[in-house]
Design a binder for these strands. Structure first.
Length: 272
DNA sequence: CTTACCGCCTGTCGGC
DNA sequence: TGCCGACAGGCGGTAA
C-alpha cells in the first residue's frame, strides 16, 4: 500500500492526534497473525510508558515509548486509525490500544503483510542497519549513492526500489521518477552516468516531496488516519495508465512485469 | 557476493 | 449473474 509519502503522512497525522506523554492504558489483541506474529509480551512492556514522539524511518513508523520503540510496517494494506468508541472492531483489525476513555488506536491490515515489532531504543540502529539512504534527509550523500548505483548490473527501476540502497521508493514512485527523468526502466544502472544518476535522485526528492504536499496517493484502499484520501494519484504520468496516451507526447504507455512488479513507461519519452 | 523469482494474504476488477 | 484468473502500494527467503 504505502510508499514513503503515505507513511510520512500517517506519521504526521498520528503525531498530531497523539501528544507526547500519551500512555497506553490497556490492549486488545484481536488476531496476531501478521507477517510476523505480534509480540504481545514485548508490547506489554510499553504499558504506562510515556509517548516521546512518533517518526518515520524508511517505510517504518516509529512510536517511541520511554526507552522502547514500537516499529510498525504497513505492508500493502496496513493502517492505523483512532476510534472514539471503545473497542469498535472491524473484520481485519489486529490490535487496539486504549490511550484514554475516548482515544483508541487500532491497527487494521486485511492482507497481513504488515507487522509490528518492539525494540529498545539503543538497538534501533542495529535493527535498521541494512537500510539504505533517506532520500529527503539533507545529510544523505548522493555522490556516494551514485557510485554504488553505477556498480550495479540490475535495471535502474529495480535498484530504485531496493531498500538496501535508497529507502522509501516503491513501485509507483519508481515508475513516475523514471518517466519524469526520461530514463527507460530497464536500463542497467552501470550504463548511467553519475550526472544522470544525480538527476534521478534529485527527481526522487521532487516527486516524494510533491506527493507529501498532496497528502499522498490513494490508489485503492489507502487512507490517512482521518480516513481521507490523498490527491497525488491525479498527478501520475504513467503508473496505472497502460495503453493510455502519454501526457507529453500521446504515445500509448507501455507496461510489463519487471522483477515481479508492473512497470509503466512511455516508449517515446524514455529511451534505452 | 548479486540478482530474480516466489510466497505470503484478502479484496477487487475485468473477461467470458 | 457468477465464476475465475490476474493483479494490487510490501518485504524476506531461497535458488541460481
Amino acid at each position: 500500500m504505502p510508499e514513503l509519502p503515505e507513511v510520512e503522512i500517517v506519521c504526521r497525522n498520528l503525531a498530531k492526534m497523539l501528544q507526547p506523554g500519551a500512555v497506553i492504558r490497556q490492549w486488545k489483541f484481536f488476531r496476531g497473525d501478521l507477517r510476523f506474529k505480534i509480540p504481545k509480551t514485548q508490547l506489554q512492556k510499553l504499558q504506562s510508558l510515556p509517548l516521546v514522539r512518533i517518526s518515520r524511518r524508511a517505510k517504518y513508523i516509529l512510536f517511541y515509548f520511554g526507552d522502547y520503540v514500537m516499529i510498525s510496517h504497513l505492508g500493502m494494506t496496513g493502517s492505523w486509525r483512532l476510534e472514539k468508541a471503545a473497542w469498535d472492531r472491524r473484520k481485519h483489525d489486529h490490535l487496539a490500544f486504549a490511550i484514554d476513555h475516548e482515544t483508541f488506536l487500532v491497527f487494521e491490515d486485511p492482507r497481513r503483510f504488515g507487522f509490528i515489532e518492539v525494540v529498545r531504543e539503543d538497538k534501533l540502529n542495529d535493527r535498521f542497519s541494512q537500510l539504505g539512504a533517506e532520500p529527503l534527509d539533507s545529510t544523505t550523500n548522493f555522490e556516494l549513492l551514485g557510485e554504488k548505483f553505477s556498480r550495479l548490473s540490475s535495471p535502474i527501476k529495480t535498484a530504485l526500489m531496493n531498500q538496501k540502497l535508497l529507502v522509501g521508493v516503491g513501485n509507483i514512485y519508481a515508475s513516475e521518477v523514471l518517466f519524469r527523468t526520461g530514463i527507460h526502466p530497464q536500463i542497467k544502472c552501470s550504463k548511467l552516468s553519475q550526472k544522470t544518476l544525480r538527476m534521478i535522485f534529485r527527481e526522487v526528492e521532487e516527486v516524494l516531496t510533491a506527493a507529501i504536499s498532496a497528502g499522498g496517493s490513494s490508489i485503492s484502499s489507502y487512507r490517512n488516519s482521518y480516513g481521507e484520501k490523498g490527491n497525488f494519484q491525479t498527478s501520475f504520468f504513467v503508473y496505472g495508465r497502460k495503453n493510455e496516451p502519454c501526457l507529453k507526447c500521446s504515445t500509448p504507455i507501455k507496461s510489463s512485469m519487471q522483477a515481479g512488479r508492473s512497470t509503466f513507461w512511455c516508449p517515446r519519452c524514455q529511451k534505452k
